[in-house]
Amino acid sequence: MTADTGPDTRSLKPVSVDIAVVGAGPAGLFAAYYAGLRGLRVALLDSLPHPGGQVAALYPEKRIHDIAGLPAVHGRELIDNLLLQVAPFEPEWLLGHTAVSLNRSANGGGWVIGTDQGGDVRCGAVVVTGGVGSFTPRRLPAGDSYEGRGVTYHVARLADHRGQDVVVVGGGDSAVDWALALEPLARSVTLVHRTDRFRAQAHSVDLLRRSSVEVVTGAQVTACHGVERLSAVDVTVTGSEGSPERRDCQAMIAALGFTARLGPIGQWGMALVGNRILVGTDMQTDVPGVFAAGDIATYPGRVPLIAVGFGEAATAVNNAVARVRPDLGAVPGHSSDAVMPPAPQPVPALAAAS
């Protein structure tokens, strides 16, 4: 299994496990691994048809620099490694399933998650790792008519932009990272940002300033041109009375961020702060037996990093273990003492898709 593929798991049969992990992004995959490491059966649900969450869907080629022990790793590689890590424990995969409802089981000792495919997942505890929930890119009105014809909201494959004139719009981490990643491949890279203040990491902005990327601040892309595909854009300096500057451009990446919503999870009765689920130090919500980890969780002082999400996932799972299997407790032994099961054979559906 890789970040690009996933098993066909649209089964309507009920699934019974110890822990259900809702969200198959980085935090969810690590949570499933840790549950397996503690000897529990686990199910992974995600509305996307493939594992990896937002990283696999939007940033597979992005280099990630803030995970301990990995000086730099592409998003796709990170997800592939997480899949290799969880594979020996053979979780129940329910990809393409949106978790819709959460109800107490008939005996009151666990939970039943209903999905939009009609199947139920019965479990002793729930760990919600749904990232930012469902997400949609913030639109760039000037590029609407060229979406899919040169205008995109993320970079699926860096190599697709080799030899092109590329305009990146935005001032956050994604915009700066894409501009730097495209610099060695593209014929030219221009970054357009509406202010001179960047929201990206200071080190990344410093690299940007020292690169060959042309940085245009205090400006916006106000029009796109081309016949079949994008061939040029107009860049207008904010407040200027002069004519826009037309620039050759075969690709424009509008990295303006995303809007997110929790969807049905927001109706499960957990305390919320905005679009985030409030948790305690054990990563448990105010609904006993329901935990949250990763960017969908919040508490005072939380820092939204993948590295932080990994630690939260381990904390959530170990405390969930204590509820489902009190004899095991919340404190695991040394992982080096664990007896790892052999890696399973490839899933037929995956082998066919590879």
Rank of each mutant, 00 (worst) to 15 (best):
R247K: 11
L78C: 10
T98H: 10
A352L: 15
G311P: 00
A35W: 07
L140R: 04
P346C: 08
P342T: 13
A330D: 03
G110E: 09
A260N: 05
T217H: 04
G69R: 09
L272F: 00
A353V: 03
D327T: 13
A125G: 06
V308N: 11
G119I: 02
G309C: 11
H225Y: 13
V17C: 12
R162H: 15
D295I: 01
A27Y: 01
G118H: 10
A72K: 10
T259K: 08
S211C: 04
V155E: 12
A352D: 14
R41T: 09
N318A: 07
A20F: 03
P244K: 05
M252P: 02
V235Q: 03
R139K: 14
R194C: 01
A3C: 07
G170V: 05
R41L: 02
V166C: 08
V221N: 10
D165M: 00
H50F: 13
L82I: 06
P88M: 11
V169T: 09
V15M: 07
C123P: 06
A20T: 12
D327H: 12
L207S: 07
A106L: 14
G239C: 08
P341R: 09
P346E: 07
R38Q: 08
D286K: 03
S336Q: 02
L37G: 00
V237N: 00
H334F: 07
N107C: 10
A292P: 04
G131S: 11
A179G: 15
Y34A: 06
R10F: 01
V21Q: 05
G333Y: 05
I306A: 11
G143S: 10
P137D: 03
V112A: 13
G124N: 05
G23K: 01
T152G: 08
R197P: 00
A338H: 11
V227F: 12
Y59M: 09
V237Y: 02
F89K: 08
E241Q: 13
R199V: 04
A24H: 01
L140G: 06
V121A: 07
G294Q: 06
V237I: 08
A32S: 14
S204D: 15
S47D: 14
I277H: 01
G280F: 03
R209H: 14
P60F: 13
Y153G: 07
T9M: 10
V176D: 12
L272S: 00
P326R: 12
P49K: 08
E147S: 06
S336R: 08
G124W: 04
G150P: 03
P332H: 02
V189R: 05
A24G: 00
A186G: 10
V215E: 11
R104C: 04
F30K: 06
G148C: 10
G170W: 02
D18P: 05
V324T: 04
A125N: 04
G52W: 02
S212H: 11
S231F: 02
E92Q: 13
L83V: 06
V205M: 08
I19C: 09
V215A: 12
A352C: 09
S105R: 12
H334I: 00
L58Y: 08
L48Q: 15
F310H: 13
R197F: 06
I265V: 15
A351T: 15
P332G: 05
Q164A: 13
L45V: 07
T236C: 00
G131T: 11
S211Q: 05
R276N: 08
A57R: 15
